[in-house]
Design a protein around this nucleic acid. Structure first.
Length: 372
RNA sequence: GCGUGAUUGGUGAAGUGGUUAACACGGCGGAUUGUGGUUCCGUUAUGCAAGGGUUCGAUCCCCUUAUCGCGCC
């Protein structure tokens, strides 16, 4: 069975929407934040812990699992859910972003597919739109992504236009071989911050009739916030109301709010877990660095928060763990940071219900940017 | 007591008679947006044991003192 999106309510003053996404592994309300679990695990956390923080969907990565342990092994294990003991919904990323971040030579990106070097052993690899989908079929995630070409933020009009065209051709090729009845497939809209390209990309992708639509090519490499918001604004009008919209790679709290206001339903990002491993924590009053000396004798929790970490540990202790490079530090901070973003989406959903999203945004940002 | 070798930042240390004393660790701060798990970037000795001398100029040469190591009586 494919996923099913149900639109519950539109917010009165913005394009935000409250919805519910039904999957074979449970339903969840949107907007939702999805933690990233590249190698079939959200780094340092167990499925039970994710559940405890009301995390609903997680990501896994086609490219990484293809290399190790290999999609056949995951398939023999009974699919990703069984393999990793996670019974909630899983979305697999297609590997398109890894092309962007790992392939240095543009000549390695061809119409047929992308030439990679296996970073583990130097083997030559060739990933195509068909192969990406076939791997995801075997991984048996709930939602697969079309293989796209993710252009750098600095790309010019012609480059963006070509990547839009190529992404459309790749989407068609991938869709043609998609063969997992229990897996949904999303198309990815590209086009940078350019209005006509986003419109074209969105319209043509929607014509192919996917189960959901992603906005890709954002949060890449130093693009401005304005460009990110443009990419959303120029894409959203062409996506039908009855399909979920997923903004790929975005997880800065303010970007999640801005995305929600613009009509996004799903977000994913490595930020909460990566920041955690580097000793940082989200708070209502902005991001803090636990390594800072001022926390040495701070025997209070990170903040008033319902997460396991804040209920049980002090900043002084967390700082100690982080400074000593103890994995428990990154683990406890991951719990807090993920819970922070999940709770943010809970509050956004509440604000949509109450038609007070703009007020919520102002209050949140004022606090987050330390204006009060 | 005599002889001898040392003494460079929080630590381990490199170095030279001439504008800014290497590097590493540590410290302090920053970064991080579809994750190549202990990442990346910035900063951190107005001073080379103390005092005196030689010199245009000394951390580097000389003298004295202090401390430490080694050897001998």
């Amino acid at each position: 069975m494919k996923i099913k999106y149900e639109l519950l309510k539109k917010e009165k003053n913005t394009k935000a929407r409250l919805g519910i996404l039904k999957t074979n592994h449970g339903d969840f309300e949107t907007p939702m934040f999805m933690p990233v679990g590249t190698l079939a695990n959200v780094k340092t956390l167990t499925p039970e812990e994710l559940k405890e923080m009301s995390s609903a969907v997680i990501l896994a990565n086609t490219y990484h699992l293809w290399l190790r342990p290999g999609e056949d092994i995951v398939n023999q294990a009974g699919g990703l859910h069984k393999f990793m003991n996670y019974d909630g919904p899983i979305l697999t990323d297609c590997g398109g972003f890894q092309v962007f971040s790992l392939v240095k030579n543009k000549k390695d990106i061809t119409e047929e597919g992308v030439h990679f070097k296996n970073y583990l052993n130097g083997d030559k690899l060739f990933l195509t739109p068909e192969l990406s989908i076939q791997i995801q079929n075997k991984l048996d995630s709930d939602i697969a992504m079309s293989f796209d070409e993710c252009p750098p933020a600095s790309a010019d009009y012609d480059y963006l236009k070509n990547s839009v065209e190529r992404t459309l051709r790749w989407a068609k090729r991938g869709k043609a071989v998609h063969a997992n009845e229990n897996q949904s497939l999303f198309g990815i809209i590209q086009g940078g911050p350019i209005e006509d390209l986003r419109a074209y990309s969105a319209k043509e992708t929607v014509k192919m009739d996917f189960d959901g639509y992603s906005i890709g090519g954002v949060a890449n490499d130093g693009e401005s916030k304005e460009d990110m918001y443009k990419a959303i604004d120029y894409s959203i009008p062409y996506i039908p109301d009855d399909k979920p919209r997923y903004l790929m790679g975005v997880g800065d709290p303010i970007d999640i709010i801005e995305g929600t206001i613009r009509g996004i339903d799903m977000f994913d990002c490595v930020l909460p877990t990566r920041l955690a491993r580097h000793g940082n924590a989200f708070t209502r009053h902005g991001k803090i660095n636990l390594k800072n000396a001022k926390y040495k004798k701070d025997f209070t929790p990170i903040e008033e928060c319902d997460c396991y970490t804040c209920k049980n540990y002090t900043k002084a202790y967390l700082r100690h763990l982080v400074v000593c490079n103890e994995v428990l530090g990154g683990r406890l901070l991951s719990i807090h940071n993920i819970r922070f973003l999940i709770r943010l989406t809970e509050e956004l959903r509440e604000a949509i219900k109450n038609d007070c999203l703009l007020e919520y945004k102002k209050e949140f940002i004022d606090k987050y940017e330390n204006k009060n």
